[in-house]
Design a protein around this nucleic acid. Structure first.
Length: 399
DNA sequence: TCTGGGGTCCTAGGACCC
DNA sequence: TCTGGGGTCCTAGGACCC
């Protein structure tokens, strides 16, 4: 790896809210970025959380992830607009296409954040800070939303630079700037310092990133184990991880969960949900040509306590019917009879599907299911997720 | 009508084996 | 008669991210 890297971190400002605003402007509606506003889920179906907020809403203390109920208590005039995930996904795709123009090394970190390795590109786009500024302006002119760009010698510093003052700004964060720009910040603002780490750090008088950086390494490891070492390195701007282009790494898990619009209290109802989850999660896994060896189910009760159960299967599988039956068994073993708020399923221990490894017996046994699954996937892709259901699910719907 | 969904990584404890 | 001990696998739970 080159010693003097230049990494960009590109982060869409209030992504969901900005993207919805762009769409609304084209429809003659007001700009959510100019008022206290939030993108939120549907409260009637118990999805009422803040997914993104405007800077004005943020000034009222509105936070991403909190309930809309709480958000409105802080900001009664808050305008809440529903999310449009399809549109977000399309917009994100276009943004990354533009980034791919700039560098062959672009890593998609989330729907609205990416890293770009600018090392060696000065000859093409010019001096890094100037290039970052031009990129930011080009995104704004092309799409109508703004981004922050962090410019730094590695990913962690680029990310932290991107988190400095927002919106629509380019910040650098080189090693000689740490003391001035990074170290005065509250320790909670360091990437990977969440609620629990913050609590431990504050209890030991470590309230800024600078104090964490100057701590004895062994001391932090005693406090927070291996995570402590990670945080200590981040605070000191140490990170050698490469920018990994999207699509070049293998998936590790697929999961699908749903908060139910009302609590589920019977096995029959739960089974219908498990079927639906099995269909979508298996279809997604098959589309990327994986099989799983670990199958898991998660339950959140109405008191918000969460439990999970998993099992390992001897032969990796992608068979919806088999996986559904496994979900069902796990759920029955897991469920304590109390009202259930959320049901989730997961497929882990993935292996890339290699058809040549199948024995003749396996092939014959699973042939029927595979053909059926393949046909179902095709129809769902063409006509939508609801196009095909299991028999039991249909009869359930009729009730 | 208070609290989403999809991920990755880590740790602790028990089972099991030599 | 006094409960070794290391290694590995599996499971459950938790932290953290966007």
């Amino acid at each position: 790896m080159s010693k003097n890297r230049i990494i960009f971190h590109i982060d869409v400002n209030s992504a969901y809210l900005s993207w919805t605003s762009v769409k609304r402007l084209s429809e003659g509606l007001c700009d959510l970025r100019d008022i206290p506003a939030a993108i939120g889920g549907d409260e009637k179906s118990r999805h009422g959380v803040v997914l993104a907020k405007s800077i004005l809403a943020q000034r009222f203390g509105v936070k991403t992830g909190e309930s809309l109920f709480e958000a409105r208590q802080k900001c009664p005039e808050l305008l809440v607009v529903p999310a449009d995930h399809q549109y977000y996904s399309e917009t994100s795709h276009k943004l990354f296409e533009l980034l791919d123009d700039y560098s062959p090394l672009v890593e998609r970190f989330s729907i609205d954040e990416g890293f770009l390795d600018y090392t060696g590109l000065e000859g093409i786009h010019g001096e890094p800070m100037k290039a970052a500024f031009e990129l930011k302006e080009r995104i704004k002119a092309t799409f109508g939303f703004t981004v922050n760009i962090g410019v730094a010698p590695n990913k962690i510093l680029a990310k932290m630079a991107g988190e400095l003052k927002k919106p629509d700004l380019v910040h650098s964060l080189f090693h000689h700037e740490l003391e001035e720009k990074l170290w005065p910040l509250p320790v909670r603002e360091l990437f990977m310092v969440g609620k629990s780490s913050e609590k431990v750090l504050l209890n030991h008088g470590i309230d800024t990133i600078g104090k964490l950086a100057k701590c004895d390494q062994e001391y932090i490891i005693k406090l927070l184990k291996s995570h402590g070492l990670t945080l200590w390195k981040y605070a000191n701007g140490i990170d050698n991880s490469p920018v990994v282009p999207t699509g070049t790494t293998a998936a590790k898990s697929f999961s699908n969960s749903t908060t139910l619009s009302r609590d589920v209290t019977s096995l029959e109802e739960a089974n219908l949900v498990l079927m639906r989850l099995a269909q979508t999660v298996c279809m997604r896994m098959r589309a990327e040509k994986y099989e799983c060896s670990t199958i898991s189910v998660q339950v959140k009760y109405s008191d918000f306590t969460v439990f999970s159960k998993q099992t390992k299967v001897k032969v990796p599988t992608d068979d919806t019917d088999y996986i559904y039956k496994t979900f069902k068994n796990l759920y029955e073993a897991l469920w304590n009879g109390k009202p259930v708020r959320l049901i989730g399923v997961g497929l882990n221990d993935l292996t890339e599907k290699d058809e040549s490894q199948m024995t003749i017996a396996d092939a014959i046994a699973s042939e029927k299911h595979k053909k059926l699954d393949a046909v179902c996937d095709k129809i769902r892709n063409q006509f939508g997720k609801g196009a095909i259901s299991f028999g039991a699910e249909l009869s359930g719907k009729k009730k």
